[in-house]
Design a protein around this nucleic acid. Structure first.
Lengths: 345, 345
DNA sequence: CTTTTAATTTGGAACGTTCCAAAAAACAAG
DNA sequence: CTTGTTTTTTGGAACGTTCCAAATTAAAAG
């Protein structure tokens, strides 16, 4: 059954025209006569012809594939980011290679090189921790547009699409302060990422603004995941003087913090104020609904895709840096009057 | 800067050998002399050559790409499934097209045809609701192995990898019964999916086994998502005689149910017993830790990838049906003595 | 009916590989 | 130095497209 795939010349032969004509039809060229067009199109349907884009790509030395590498698909933030990209890419007539690096630079390197061999027109990368400029350079040098999302890579001369982490964190802390909080923790994340640095800076700046001294102990590192949030709470529970609220590195950590608090019989939002970062879909329906800095991951994915598509079409690779604005969405997770919190702490 | 990509003949020329020899080196053929191999390899590095797999694919009419279409990437179950596949595919030297259908058959059709044009060696599909056998047939007919995961498509003559939904649901209900529950709901999901049907059948069979009459009202439909879980609880709250526990269609619904209970001041696990389905990563760390039927999504993804890879290598497309076993993981979400629950209800 | 112009169609080369049969080079034996 | 054998290398065709310059056909004008 597995005879050779029917090609353009098969239909050409069947229709009694040349392969060039069929090619023209395929491209929707206006050069071709209406009657031949119909005949050819009919045959295409009948013979079950499927276009071989690979061959076309070879001839034109371009491709209709976009590479996307994301560091952690199991984190809903990145999953939504990917979905946003998927939508855009799809509707532009492209397909994606979509891979998961799992925060491993080696894996990331492999997957990027594999994508390159297979011929991508552009790459959107949410870089794994520890990615270096040299990991991206060869790609960019060969003229393939690269867009970095979410995280930056120092020294990489490519386009970036980042959210305004500093402003977001600052807004969050201001909110907590306005509610009367003074002992505010920063939970989750590792020092060596740009995102962490920027959000922490926003935290410190807002604190400084209100003349609240920075307390080293109140920044509690942990994995940027739900499990990490639980761990951070454990770490916090032994403090003599405990914080009354926390800004979390991201929503995943925030949910973990809720979990952790509950196992310590503290009701999140009532016994402790929590703010997340990202505004993942679950943030809205969670109980308590999470107050968080909305980054609109899906929208961000769309913009990243648009950017890379624009660069592909323009044939330009002049790096472009966009920082998307961000807004605080106040929900239920830090609703209680602070007086009460301080008594509990 | 964007000169023509360096090709096999460029290095051949530079090395003073023929393109055939370079090709041999690339394939790691033992035919070629050690010294020439070294020389060629050196040049490959120096000239920044990148293999054009597209050209090779064209010549050999095969490809090193696997298509994966998943209905909802934002659901952690599917995200983990995808990650499992990613691992396997990657380490077999393939790359994936990975796309999201968002439960839209139209979108699914488009994306599959796009993948086909781009040349895939196999397809793993977690079909959108309403997928018909005819959506898959052309692909399968053309000799490309297709593996259906998670959901089946009636009438499709392709391989499937499904979890044992019936047994899982039955085990869950038995567990609830053994804890003394008699008013047990089934929450989440729509009637028209096979998964729903199988799990519901397990639920009914276990009930029958214990001579508990089936109560139509206790199966509460809703979207199979976190939000759906919340909605289901709202629906339940107005019942005169409320259930004391529920088996949820999946973990996402279960989490939603927890959320919903909390907004009604019922503490999940204490005031109401909940069992999920899937055993997503968060199930373990959630509070209360979720009792759930473990499907091991990541492992399932791996198996699916293995299956499709096997079929690609074997060149066989004889459909194969695997049903993976499933086990109940008892954690905290239905821990309370039932007497107490019944008083509350 | 011839010429001019416009509309449509067409061979073949090219893209970067692999594969094959055959050539060339290196080595061994007589 | 032949001859035979083994090792290594090599042109060219092929994969399914696109593109171009040129050829053919149809229509319009004289």
């Amino acid at each position: 059954m597995n005879k050779t795939r029917t090609s353009i010349v098969d239909i050409a032969h069947a229709a009694g025209v040349s392969k060039s004509t069929v090619s023209l039809v395929l491209q929707g060229s206006p050069l071709v006569n209406e009657k031949t067009r119909e005949k050819v199109n009919a045959l295409i349907g009948d013979l079950g012809y499927v276009y071989n884009r690979g061959a076309a790509n070879l001839r034109q030395s371009k491709s209709k594939i976009i590479g996307i590498v994301v560091n952690d698909l199991t984190n809903s933030f990145f999953a939504e980011l990917a979905v946003g990209m998927d939508m855009m890419v799809q509707s532009a007539g492209y397909v994606q290679f979509l891979a998961h690096s799992g925060e491993s630079v080696d894996r990331q390197r492999e997957v990027i090189s594999s994508m390159r061999e297979n011929g991508i027109a552009g790459l959107i990368l949410s870089p794994a921790r520890g990615t270096e400029a040299s990991d991206i350079k060869p790609l960019a040098d060969s003229g393939i547009p690269v867009v970095l999302v979410v995280r930056n890579v120092p020294g990489a001369k490519v386009s970036t699409l980042l959210s305004d982490n500093h402003a977001g964190a600052k807004a969050a802390i201001r909110h907590l302060i306005s509610l009367g909080h003074r002992r505010i923790a920063f939970m989750g994340g590792f020092v060596d990422t740009a995102v962490f640095g920027e959000r922490l800076r926003g935290y410190r700046d807002a604190l400084a603004e209100a003349d609240i001294p920075f307390n080293e102990k109140f920044v509690i590192h942990s994995a940027p995941s739900r499990a990490g949030g639980v761990a951070a709470v454990e770490r916090m529970m032994v403090f003599a003087e405990r914080p009354t609220s926390a800004l979390c590195l991201n929503d995943a950590v925030a949910f973990g913090v809720c979990d952790g608090l509950r196992s310590n019989n503290i009701e999140p939002g009532k016994g402790f104020g929590i703010i997340g970062f990202d505004d993942v879909i679950e943030a809205k329906t969670a109980v308590p609904a999470l107050t968080t800095v909305s980054v609109d991951p899906q929208g961000m994915g769309q913009r990243a895709a648009q950017l890379v598509l624009k660069q592909i079409n323009a044939g330009q690779t002049d790096p472009e840096s966009i920082v998307t604005s961000v807004r605080l969405v106040v929900r239920q997770s830090c609703g209680a009057p602070v007086k009460q919190l301080e008594e509990l702490a």
